Measured scan of single mutants.
Amino acid sequence: TFELKGKVGKVVKIAEDHYLVESEGDKWIAYSDEKLSLGDRVMVVDVDGLKLKVKRIP
């Protein structure tokens, strides 16, 4: 299986209740415990079905 946990991506869209993150050339629906901005670099900390939980990284 394709393992996304630990992968790095970038926030490419902000929606009302989720983010769109591009990682490894694909776009994924993501959510975070912190507020993210367009262009933020993020790391995948968990995968919930087809949704990614991400956190901001420097």
Rank of each mutant, 00 (worst) to 15 (best):
S23D: 04
D17F: 12
V8D: 08
L50F: 13
V11S: 00
G49M: 11
Y19V: 10
I14H: 06
E22W: 12
K27C: 12
S32R: 07
A30F: 01
L4K: 14
K5F: 15
W28V: 03
W28Y: 14
S37M: 11
M43H: 04
I57M: 12
D40M: 13
K27E: 07
G9K: 01
K35R: 12
K5V: 15
K55L: 14
V8K: 06
V47E: 04
S32I: 04
G49P: 06
M43A: 05
K5C: 15
K35V: 07
I57E: 13
V42G: 00
L52H: 01
D17Y: 13
S37P: 02
R56D: 02
L36E: 00
K51A: 14
K35F: 07
G49K: 08
D33R: 13
L50W: 14
Y19G: 01
L38K: 06
V54L: 07
K27W: 06
K10W: 12
H18K: 09
L52A: 04
K13R: 13
L38S: 07
V47R: 03
V12M: 11
V11H: 00
G6P: 00
V45Y: 08
K35W: 08
V12L: 13
G39M: 11
G9D: 00
A15D: 09
V54D: 00
S37Q: 08
L50S: 07
V12I: 08
D26A: 14
V11T: 04
L52Y: 02
V44K: 01
A30N: 00
A30W: 01
I57D: 11
G39Q: 11
E34L: 05
D33V: 12
Y31T: 09
K35Y: 07
E22G: 04
E16C: 12
E34I: 05
K7C: 13
V47W: 06
Y19M: 10
E34W: 05
K55Q: 13
G39P: 01
K35A: 08
D48V: 13
D48K: 06
F2V: 15
V42K: 00
I14K: 07
G25C: 06
I29F: 12
D46P: 01
S32Q: 02
G25R: 03
V44Y: 04
S23V: 15
D40Q: 13
K35L: 06
Y31L: 11
G49R: 08
G25Y: 04
V54K: 00
V11M: 02
V47T: 04
I57L: 10
A15V: 10
K13Q: 06
D46R: 02
L38N: 09
K55C: 15
L52Q: 01
A15S: 08
Y19P: 00
M43E: 15
E34A: 07
L50C: 12
H18T: 12
A30T: 14
V12R: 07
E16V: 08
L50Y: 14
G9R: 01
D17E: 09
G49N: 09
D46F: 03
D48M: 11
S32N: 04
G6R: 00
V47K: 03
D17A: 12
V21N: 01
L38V: 07
G25I: 03
D40E: 11
Y31G: 06
V47D: 02
K35H: 08
I57V: 07
H18F: 09
S23W: 01
K7S: 13
V44E: 02
L4Q: 15
L4T: 14
K53D: 04
E24S: 04
V42L: 02
K10V: 07
L4W: 05
G39F: 14
V54H: 01
